[in-house]
């Protein structure tokens, strides 16, 4: 469903790329991408959505280049900016996007009820709390029969109980999923998913979340490494079963790299 090759994005007026040579293929799979804030995770999703132009490389969704894709309702996201088509209460936005996506508004209204977000239906997006906005975006993303779902920090500002319900919804979703998060501790909920590590615009992987306990980060370039990270603070290798620091031990990927630098 998703095929990214050599994707590099450099924003105008900057020399450091936000994304560096990303290769990613997602077909019948779900993947968590873990990285610190500013590592390029959101830029990756915005590039796939066609909201950021690649400097080089290609992105194909369903076999069609994103630059030319039109009328493909099977891809969805939780980024709030794409639901600001008109300044309307959430109830009308649900009906509007159900029509645009060819879905049933009752499906998303049901999700909203199950997350106790019924009061949000009568409000505009900007009238919702940050957590409510995030959840409404998450529920837009999983509604109307998507085949590829791009989720950017879907658990930010979401309380514990709803996080659990959202995890259950995402695990059961019959679609390919690319989920960005900076919270390593969330990975335990997605043991059967693929894992990507993002640092300074580079995507390492795919690994498996289930093998997280076996992954280590090691200084320098190690022969037989699973992946090599060339960063501004040095070169590091991702190794299996042995290495300088277990990936699982870190509170964040930044902290892990900094502890070795």
């Amino acid at each position: 469903m998703l095929d990214i090759r050599g994707l590099t994005v450099t924003f105008p007026g900057t020399t450091t790329p936000a994304l560096r040579g990303i290769d990613l293929r997602l077909e019948g799979a779900k993947m968590v991408v873990v990285g610190a804030n500013g590592s390029g995770k959101t830029t990756l999703i915005r590039s796939i959505l066609g909201l950021v132009a690649p400097s080089s490389g290609s992105i194909a969704v369903g076999g069609t280049d994103v630059r030319t894709i039109r009328g493909e309702p099977g891809l969805s996201t939780n980024l709030a900016e794409v639901y600001r088509l008109m300044s309307l209460p959430v109830r009308d936005l649900v009906r509007l996007f159900a029509r645009l996506k060819g879905g049933d508004p009752a499906e998303m209204e049901g999700h909203l009820r199950s997350f106790e977000l019924d009061p949000a239906l009568g409000k505009r997006l900007y009238e919702l709390s940050t957590g409510q906005q995030k959840l409404v975006g998450d529920l837009f993303a999983v509604s109307f029969g998507p085949r590829l779902v791009l989720l950017d920090e879907p658990f930010d500002n979401v309380d514990f109980g709803r996080r659990r319900r959202l995890v259950g919804l995402l695990r059961a979703l019959p679609a390919d999923v690319l989920l960005n998060t900076h919270e390593l501790e969330l990975l335990g909920s997605f043991a059967d998913w693929q894992l990507g590590l993002m640092f300074e615009g580079q995507l390492l992987g795919p690994f498996s979340v289930a093998e997280l306990d076996r992954l280590y980060l090691t200084r320098g370039e190690v022969r037989g490494a699973l992946a090599v990270l060339r960063s501004s603070v040095g070169t590091f290798s991702v190794t299996r079963d042995a290495g300088d620091r277990p990936v699982k031990s870190a509170t964040s990927l930044n902290a892990l790299v900094e502890s070795l630098a």
Partner: peptide, 20 residues
């Protein structure tokens, strides 16, 4: 003003919905 507010939404909807 509505275009400034909704440029991302339009760019997205033209690609990933039935809206032309």
């Amino acid at each position: 003003g509505s275009y400034a507010y909704g440029s991302s939404a339009l760019a997205y909807a033209f690609r990933y919905s039935r809206l032309t």
